[in-house]
């Protein structure tokens, strides 16, 4: 599993505002659907990408067939595809000017990550943004998750993206 410092992940989640979710499912039972709904609840704008659902509406947002069809900029691309397919999606993320490529738990494509990083993007692999957000916000503790965080200040809990951004900036880490 790749290693990332808490600060790097916190900076990503505290700075991005728009997230394209590639491979999102229309099924409420699927993790990709959970993630989109959860991140919307934390005040991120989530753009669903799935060629099979293109043109339909999912959780209030229009579904696009691919990243290049999204007619406005996105900050982060979250990839729910297998590791091989993630390579092309990551390259597309570079092409559309995203700042962050995020590959889900179990998804690792080191070559694509190197290309994205050399283009100046931040890359996170083999992680879930919902889990990471829950970990930093303290919500994960509600289900007995070992957050590996000790904090001597009040937790921000469900306060949303802006609070995490303030938290990251407050520690002098700034935005991306």
């Amino acid at each position: 599993m790749p290693e990332y410092s808490d600060d790097v992940i916190k900076k990503v989640l505290g700075s991005v505002k728009t997230i394209a979710i590639v491979g999102v499912s229309a099924s409420e039972a699927k993790p990709s659907h959970f993630v989109m709904k959860y991140m919307q609840g934390k005040r991120y704008r989530c753009i669903p990408v799935n060629p099979g659902l293109a043109g339909k509406t999912l959780l209030g947002e229009t579904v696009y067939p691919d990243l290049k069809s999204i007619p406005f900029p996105v900050d982060m691309v979250d990839i729910f595809r297998n590791s091989e397919a993630a390579g092309q999606v990551s390259d597309d993320a570079v092409a559309i000017g995203a700042k962050v490529v995020w590959m889900q738990l179990g998804v690792v494509n080191a070559a694509a990550a190197a290309r994205a990083e050399s283009a100046g993007l931040t890359v996170i692999m083999d992680r879930c943004p919902k889990m990471e957000y829950s970990r930093f916000s303290g919500e994960f503790g509600w289900v007995g998750r070992n957050s590996r965080i000790i904090d001597n200040r009040r937790k921000i809990l469900g306060a949303g993206r802006a609070a995490l951004a303030r938290d990251a900036i407050g520690k002098g880490k700034g935005t991306l």
Partner: peptide
């Protein structure tokens, strides 16, 4: 789809710290 407290038979914030 979201973690949170519902009913103490399923979870409780004091219990969660212990967990």
């Amino acid at each position: 789809q979201q973690f949170g407290n519902i009913y103490t038979r399923i979870g409780n914030p004091t219990q969660a710290v212990l967990e």
